[in-house]
Design a protein around this nucleic acid. Structure first.
Lengths: 157, 157
DNA sequence: GCAATATAGTCGTCTGAACATCTATTGTCC
DNA sequence: GGACAATAGATGTTCAGACGACTATATTGC
């Protein structure tokens, strides 16, 4: 009810409403995530780098990490600089291809991830605990359908 | 199928998958939006300011605009600076409350909005044209449910 | 009616995102 | 095998986002 009234008043089209709703919802949930990461001294993107490295059994070249990240990262180099300074990753020039730089997570990096596990689960509960699992599943499937034509070839998304 | 495999492999929980899917999808659609706005010399947030002012019949105080925006805007002042420089808005000190600054859209601002109408509709079609209306409706409702506990009191969202 | 407090907006400053350009190394193809 | 193109990443620069401190005005409570 209120929805459709609001729609008529505020949006030019259903597509616009969908996009702005997506943006708004992301923004609201992001605020919670950012607050958490801030207290632990890293950013969401930095956390995702560690998560990706941890999930991979081996070290990965710089740009391979960038392509797996949630959000584009043209400044991946400087992001890794910070992670390296914090001691959470190591950089090694690949012997096979001296252009590429292999990144691996350090013990300290794994420790940091471990430390974040609990708080992160709590934060996700705060973000989405009020939503039924079947709705979340539905949401994930809808979103996958929505973004599929916009994914680059051979992406892991 | 592939979904649930991916889930087991890549995410720690359904909630995390939902949040990261949301982020990823937003990021993909945003890239299209940004490209469009860039060619027209404004940002998505700036466009939304104009859209809000245009929808309102009267001028609005600065912070009222900020609270209606999709994404938080602590730097609303400087955003408005740019819109003013471009000639799309006017600022007037309120005679009733000299603390507040009333913003109104100019004729040039309305013209700019008009100019963007067509390209914007095309862009939304590219973003979401492949998704059925009922799925978009479903998405909007799901998203509203998801963000509702995270909205500030008395928000227009 | 005056001190204390709240509100509206501005400004300084720092960090992160975006983009173009640059260097080093590797691959290609004649 | 040497010129040329492609790839991996680093770097310079510019701009938006975030946060706190600050000024001006209004409201409240005594």
């Amino acid at each position: 009810m209120t929805e459709s009234v609001a729609t008529k008043r505020k949006f030019d089209s259903l597509q616009q409403e969908a996009y702005l709703s997506l943006w708004r919802t992301y923004d609201r949930l992001r605020a919670l995530e950012e607050k958490l990461f801030q207290t632990h001294g890293l950013t969401a993107q930095q956390y995702n780098v560690l998560r990706i490295l941890n999930a991979s059994s081996e070290s990965m070249p710089t740009l391979a990490i960038a392509s797996k990240l949630v959000s584009r990262a043209p400044d991946i180099t400087r992001m890794l600089d910070k992670l390296e300074t914090a001691g959470w990753i190591d950089r090694v020039r690949s012997p096979d291809d001296r252009r590429s730089v292999l990144i691996e997570i350090t013990a300290a990096g794994r420790k940091k991830l471990k430390e974040l596990e609990g708080p992160l689960a709590e934060m996700h509960e705060e973000q989405l605990g009020h939503v039924a699992a079947k709705d979340l599943r539905l949401l994930c499937d809808l979103l996958a359908k929505i973004r599929s034509p916009h994914e680059p070839e051979g992406t892991s998304w």
